[in-house]
Nucleic acid binder design. Structure first.
Lengths: 238, 238
DNA sequence: CTTTAAGGTCTACGGCGTTGGCATAAGGAT
DNA sequence: ATCCTTATGCCAACGCCGTAGACCTTAAAG
């Protein structure tokens, strides 16, 4: 890499762009998010981002090590927003549930961005903060360290996996506009009972279900399992 | 699209390529899978695929409507392989569990391909076959239609979401080769207890956990929930 | 054996990520 | 106030990419 990427904290000079805008990591990330929202996942490119910023495309490389670095920063931003929108109550189950939903919602608010970032572990500050928070909730609730780590793992991966999956579905809908939307009422509803009896019998229910996320149900299932584990452990070693 | 895409069944003439190979959807999909495995997700391009096939890149467009169409065919292939590798025993819980693991494993066998396809619903035959199978298992087991559809939804989305998430992690590992692999033993292990007490306290456990998939645990959690639901329903209306 | 059109090939377009070199002005030192 | 250094924005260019349209060749239908 010929260009040295300088971290935001060390950045000293703030030379305005030819068109007058003053760049920053924050501005670039937010512009990228806006472009993703407006023009879809394929609408984000270094060149277009440059134009949108009123700067040369290559300038972005002074702030991020390639578009991949920008992508990770976007993920970090979404994770941060989830955390900011969340408040603790002190009840572990309530807090975990709302935190999971907050993460899911934060990503789904920017489906095109989520598709790019949700399956990446970045190790950046806000992401670590989320991890610390989850582990704290669990350990404070009385889970053993082993249980806490196991549940934490399932919890965070479930949230991220469904953020990615549901965002993918949303992003496609946004782009193909209904071409895909009626899949469950078109393709699946017209399968003959002779070859596909079970789909045919439940087609009306499927159409309803499949256009919503399965995440809340699975989250509750996970929390139920954790709850059971907690009470059984309490019974054992207290 | 200037090139009319002909379905495999209607294809009549099989003109060999300049270099002698005879093309088919199947050959193209398998070549693409091999390229993905050997050169990573970025290693698949129409041009490289053409060279690998001994054909002009644009020939691919006679078989698939763009690389996106090829991608969907690859997903269909992976789903088909999962189904072929699976055998029913007649016990709903055993069968669902093994089917879920088969889907997950089939995708993870080709992480780079899975990343591209796992979050796409294609509506192609083998995918529909899987859906019909799952619904059949559940309805035959005695679940009400409503429950069956709910569990089916959670089940298939869980499998696909984790196929995508875990494949993403694997694909990155394959490419960045350990740069990312030791994240949990490097970044997270060195966080000071003062700022991140919970991560610090469980760092040794985290490193173990985070390099494995949370999918089996969540799958079992889901099946537990389903089982409970089944017995409670039986109690009610039998 | 002729005809016809399927299907492989050629060429070209516009866009992409990224880089190395260059110019200029911001900010510290005097 | 002036100079100096160097951070940071700009430019031009490289080698890729997906894919459209015209063309050509040859398998098969009659």
């Amino acid at each position: 890499m010929p260009k040295k990427v300088v971290t935001e904290a060390e950045r000293r000079r703030r030379r305005p762009t030819r068109q007058g805008t003053v760049l920053s990591e924050r501005l670039i990330v937010q512009t990228a998010l806006r472009m993703l929202r407006e023009h879809g996942a394929a609408g984000l490119s270094a060149r277009r981002l440059g134009t949108a910023l009123g700067a040369d495309p290559s300038t972005v490389y002074r702030y991020f090590a390639g578009l991949d670095g920008l992508t990770r920063a976007i993920g970090e931003e979404l994770m941060g927003r989830a955390l900011d929108s969340w408040t603790a109550t002190g009840t572990w189950r309530t807090d975990l549930r709302s935190l999971g939903l907050a993460i899911h919602a934060s990503y789904l608010a920017h489906p095109q961005a989520a598709v790019l970032t949700a399956s990446r572990v970045t190790g950046r500050p806000r992401e670590i903060e989320v991890d610390e928070t989850i582990l704290g909730i669990l350990r404070d609730a009385g889970f053993t360290d082993t249980d806490a780590v196991g549940i934490y793992h399932a919890f965070i991966d479930l949230a991220l996996a469904f953020a990615a999956l549901d965002a993918g579905a949303l992003a496609i809908k946004d782009e193909v506009r209904e071409a895909d939307e009626h899949m469950w009422t078109s393709t699946y509803a017209h399968l003959p009972p002779t070859t596909h009896p079970h789909i045919a019998a439940t087609a009306h229910l499927l159409a309803d279900r499949m256009n919503h996320s399965a995440y809340p149900v699975l989250l509750d299932t996970l929390l139920n399992g954790a709850d059971a584990r907690l009470t059984s452990t309490r019974g054992q070693d207290v």
